[in-house]
Design a protein around this nucleic acid. Structure first.
Length: 519
RNA sequence: GGCUCCGUAGCCAAGUGGCUAAGGCAGCGGAUUGCAAAUCCGCCAUCGUCGGUUCGACUCCGACCGGAGCCUCCA
């Protein structure tokens, strides 16, 4: 209401808590507070760490585009047992390791076009906030200190387990050496006493460090308030992490922590079996193909490769495309095959953009990107075929951010634009009215791809030479071949094309001339 | 064992109690092309199995089979 011109559109969001979709209604009118659980920075990030950020970046883009103000927080867990262990193993400090791995994480996000994060709080910068939060819980009788540790008392939380439908009785708990310090095995640590030599902060319970779950409760409260709109993370965080966050925050505030709990599906290594150390296919295994399709979650423990390495082989845009081509709650089959397919899909779009540039002289990426969804006049200029596609795209995004359908409509859009160019022979003649329509179409395309965060950067244009010499040579070759074709010497013309193809260069004879690109 | 979820064409992947079950890749036929490439047009699924509810289910319920995630660190 206070933002934009018209009423805000209705956006349905699925919440893990209610297991249903309901319309987005915010705590503060017109303003969305969004918190995503970020990484524990002790190793280079892998593809799994990128899923949430890309999805929530897209969520934010769509919300902002639709008229909301959005504050998006992603935390960095920079104090943790694993960081301590890893830094010790490497002979460095926890702080240095965390800094290094945070830089790696940020560089990866940047490559994928994740631009919308507003605040990235670090646990170590909020120790005071965390301690105050714990003190509050102790004062309310929900937590107790025990020999330098502090634990949350799950028996004091009547609805503990509501996110994952678990009962305290059915819980196993951590066990191990801390078991005897806890009153009940399902209790979890808010504060951990430091062992000698470990990084530590002073607290009312002695030197120590925060437990894992408490930082999110404390920092989300400090930045977004005790009750905010969207809390996200991977499905693997639902229990125990988010369950415990809810327990902490709601016990302290007597308010819902977040209205919507959004969880993204996990990365699966596609067709892992049959290739790398999969299940042996012995006599007991059915000989048919279906049995070979085992997919397993990609995680740190399975030794997923650093994302940086992946970027050396694949365009980030192809990765983003792949992540968005499946509904965010579904698992994503990840691997070289799907990535290659995604890259080819991307090229279909880019061929249209190049075609448009040849016709109109305007680079797609130079087009202004409309950032607000009201724009009926401009959209109408794109013609009667485009409007319903745009409506379908927006309806899909409004329905729990269905990027899979959104992308499908983008493919329809590509076909519509290509057909328009074909039908009016825009490459041969350039009638002003049709050119204006094409411009309007591409503006809509620019607008919608912007919502998904795709095609933010210009691709290397087809026919771009690595160096000036290659460019000159290609020009020469194409000219000589053109003369041969003119003289009906197709043997020579085809020989040139065949040899170039073998060398990895594709020629295209178009109505307006011959173009080349690398395969 | 407990708690979630999934099983749609050769592959990937949306979706709905009843109009023609999106889209992509691959394939096939056609237009276009000197031939290609690119582009366009057309073709290609009855929705894991078996029951039940319903006037009607792929969509709801149950059982079964198969797969995944969580219950321990994990985005």
């Amino acid at each position: 209401m206070e933002h934009g011109t018209g009423p805000l559109p209705t956006i349905e969001i699925y919440s893990t808590l209610t297991r249903t979709k309901s319309p987005l209604a915010t705590v503060k009118p017109g303003h969305v507070g969004m918190y995503l659980c970020g990484p524990t920075v002790y190793k280079p990030s892998h593809i799994g760490h990128m899923v949430g950020p890309v999805i929530f970046d897209t969520v934010k883009r769509h919300l902002v585009y639709s008229g909301w103000r959005v504050t998006w927080v992603v935390n960095i867990t920079d104090v943790d047992d694993k960081i301590i262990a890893e830094s010790t193993a490497r002979g460095t400090t926890m702080a240095k390791l965390a800094e290094e791995m945070t830089a790696d994480y940020l560089a990866n996000l940047h490559a994928l076009g994740v631009q919308g994060i507003d605040i990235m709080p670090k646990a170590t910068e909020h120790i005071g906030t965390i301690i105050a939060f714990i003190e509050g819980l102790i004062a309310k009788g929900c937590a107790y200190s025990s020999d330098g540790d502090v634990y949350f008392d799950v028996t004091k939380d009547a609805d503990y387990g509501k996110l994952t439908n678990r009962s305290v009785a059915a819980m196993q708990g951590e066990g191990g050496s801390t078991a005897e310090r806890k009153r009940s095995s399902a209790d979890f640590a808010l504060w951990k006493q430091a062992k000698p030599g470990e990084p530590a902060w002073d607290s009312p319970w002695g030197p120590g460090r925060p437990g894992w779950h408490i930082e999110c409760s404390a920092m989300s409260k400090a930045i977004l308030g005790p009750h905010f709109d969207i809390h996200g993370g991977g499905l693997d965080l639902v229990f125990p992490h988010h369950e415990n966050e809810i327990a902490q925050s709601e016990s302290l505030h007597d308010l819902p922590m977040a209205t919507f709990w959004m969880h993204n599906g996990l990365m699966q290594a596609a067709g892992a079996a049959g290739k790398v150390g999969g299940r042996p296919r012995g006599a007991d295994a059915p000989a048919d193909d279906a049995a070979a399709q085992a997919a397993t979650k990609i995680s740190k423990s399975t030794g997923a490769e650093p994302f940086k390495n992946l970027l050396a082989r694949h365009r980030p845009e192809a990765i983003r495309m792949l992540l968005l081509s499946t509904h965010y709650r579904s698992p994503i089959h990840f691997g070289e095959e799907p990535l290659g397919e995604s890259a080819r899909a991307l090229e279909a779009f880019e061929r249209l953009f190049a075609r448009y540039q040849r016709i109109a002289g305007t680079a797609f990426h130079a087009l202004p990107c409309r950032t607000r969804r009201e724009g009926d006049v401009a959209v109408a200029a794109a013609g009667d075929e485009v409007r319903p596609l745009r409506d379908k795209f927006l309806a899909a995004m409004d329905d729990d951010f269905n990027t899979a359908i959104a992308i499908a409509t983008l493919f329809d859009f590509v076909r519509t634009a290509n057909k328009f160019i074909d039908q009016h022979s825009l490459e041969a003649k350039k009638p002003a009215a049709e050119l204006a329509t094409l411009d309007a179409m591409m503006l809509v395309m620019r607008e919608l791809t912007g919502v998904l965060g795709l095609f933010l950067e210009p691709p290397r244009p087809a026919g771009a030479a690595d160096d000036a010499l290659t460019g000159k040579l290609m020009e020469l070759i194409i000219e000589i071949r053109a003369n041969a074709r003119k003289a009906k010497d197709f043997t020579t013309a085809d020989l040139v094309r065949t040899k170039l193809t073998e060398a990895g260069i594709v020629l295209e004879d178009r109505p307006d001339g011959t173009g080349w690109s690398r395969k």
